[in-house]
Measured scan of single mutants.
Amino acid sequence: TTEYTFTDDEEARRAIEELKKRGLTFRYEKHGTTWRVRVD
C-alpha cells in the first residue's frame, strides 16, 4: 500500500483521475484541506 498526501485540490483530483485511468484500486479521504490517497 502506498499513501499519498495532497493539500491542493486540483493536484489531488488529477492524481485520482490518473489512478482511475490506470485501473488501480485506491481509496481516498479528505480531512479539511488535506487529501489522503491510498493505493493498494
Rank of each mutant, 00 (worst) to 15 (best):
T1L: 10
T2A: 08
T2Q: 10
T2I: 14
T2F: 13
E3F: 14
Y4L: 09
T5E: 08
T5D: 04
F6A: 00
F6S: 00
T7I: 07
T7F: 13
T7A: 07
T7L: 08
T7Y: 14
T7E: 11
D8Q: 04
D8F: 04
D9I: 11
D9E: 14
D9L: 09
D9W: 15
D9P: 13
E10G: 11
E11K: 07
E11F: 05
E11D: 09
A12Y: 07
A12M: 13
R13I: 11
R13F: 13
R13S: 06
R14F: 07
R14M: 10
A15V: 13
A15L: 14
A15Y: 15
A15G: 04
A15N: 04
A15C: 15
A15P: 00
I16R: 01
I16F: 05
I16D: 00
E17L: 12
E17T: 09
E17G: 07
E17R: 13
E18M: 12
L19Q: 00
L19W: 09
K20I: 14
K21H: 06
K21T: 08
K21Q: 08
R22N: 07
R22H: 07
R22F: 06
R22S: 09
G23I: 01
G23K: 05
G23Q: 04
G23W: 02
G23M: 04
G23R: 04
L24Q: 05
L24K: 06
L24A: 10
T25I: 12
T25F: 12
T25A: 09
T25C: 13
F26W: 03
R27E: 10
R27F: 13
R27Q: 13
R27Y: 14
E29V: 11
E29N: 05
K30P: 01
K30L: 06
H31Y: 11
G32A: 04
G32P: 00
G32R: 02
G32W: 02
T33W: 04
T33K: 10
T34C: 14
T34R: 06
T34F: 12
T34N: 06
T34I: 14
T34A: 06
T34K: 06
R36D: 03
R36K: 13
R36N: 05
V37Y: 00
V39A: 03
V39K: 00
V39H: 02
V39L: 06
V39R: 00
D40Q: 12
